[in-house]
């Protein structure tokens, strides 16, 4: 509790400071992981705000995908059509990108998509915590895809999976160079995959916080409120688009594992 009180005092001080002319911003404070109960160290099993917002994401997914479809109606209710829409959207994406054999992995891919979508949108609720804005989370997601897809590529294709790096359509002299480039780009995949998602969300949320800090100045507060509104609209788009991008890249990587030949 003490930390919170201090945080409130700090915010007050910042607000007063703002009126005095010296604006104080804490745009990164929203990303702090803190225990929900008490204020000890954040250990492995500590119930933190991360736990809370992931739990809310689970509840949201259950509400949408399970409760929404509980009537199993042939003529769907609104909630059921939303669930069916998401199902159809991801199903078609997996089928279009990876082909029929990729549909075995559809449950994994829709799990990733729904988790990211819910985490992103829940993060847009004021005072909430955005779990997907942390590299710890997105790196695990991206590494799971990377390790899974690489393992799958070797299991499905054996050594011929390495032909992914051997561009047979290029002139023979260029192939070793291209192979080096291909290997590097392959290992950069999880990095870009994870940083893209967390970076986008972190940047957007931080920018909103910075504009919110400016709102303490009476002169610029209307402008800053307009800017917050505009950024919020952009963030709504980013929340969906980044989830979509993460999912479709997962499908593309999966396709490479299933059909490694150029």
């Amino acid at each position: 509790m003490a930390t919170e009180m201090e945080a409130a005092q700090g915010a007050d001080a910042a607000a007063h400071g703002g009126e005095a002319g010296g604006l104080v911003f804490h745009p990164m404070d929203q990303f702090i992981v803190k225990p929900l109960f008490g204020h000890g160290e954040v250990g492995l099993f500590t119930i933190t705000n991360v736990t809370l917002w992931m739990l809310i994401a689970i509840l949201g997914i259950v509400a949408m995908m399970v409760l929404g479809t509980s009537r199993r109606a042939v003529i769907p209710s609104r909630a059921q059509s939303v669930a069916e829409l998401v199902y159809g959207f991801i199903y078609k994406m997996v089928e279009d990108v990876t082909g029929k054999e990729g549909l075995r992995y559809f449950p994994y891919i829709i799990t990733l998509f729904l988790f990211i979508v819910f985490a992103n949108f829940l993060g847009l609720i004021p005072m909430s915590f955005t779990v997907t804005s942390h590299f710890a989370v997105t790196v695990v997601l991206a590494l799971a895809v990377f390790v899974g897809v690489t393992a799958l590529g070797f299991i499905k294709n054996g050594k011929s999976f390495l032909s992914l790096f051997w561009v047979s359509s290029a002139p023979l002299a260029l192939r070793p160079i291209l192979a080096v480039i291909e290997v590097i780009s392959y290992f950069v995949r999880p990095v870009s995959h994870s940083i893209r998602l967390a970076g986008n969300l972190m940047a957007g949320h931080a920018v909103i916080k910075v504009f919110a800090g400016f709102a303490a100045l009476a002169v610029v507060s209307p402008l800053s409120i307009v800017a917050i509104t505009a950024m919020y609209g952009l963030e709504v788009m980013v929340a969906l688009i980044q989830a979509y991008v993460f999912t479709i890249l997962t499908c593309v990587y999966l396709k490479d594992a299933l059909h490694p030949h150029h």
Partner: peptide, 14 residues
Amino acid sequence: DWIPNQVFWLIITL
């Protein structure tokens, strides 16, 4: 300091 906690809850959630 926070990474193990986040990873743990993420895996549970997924």
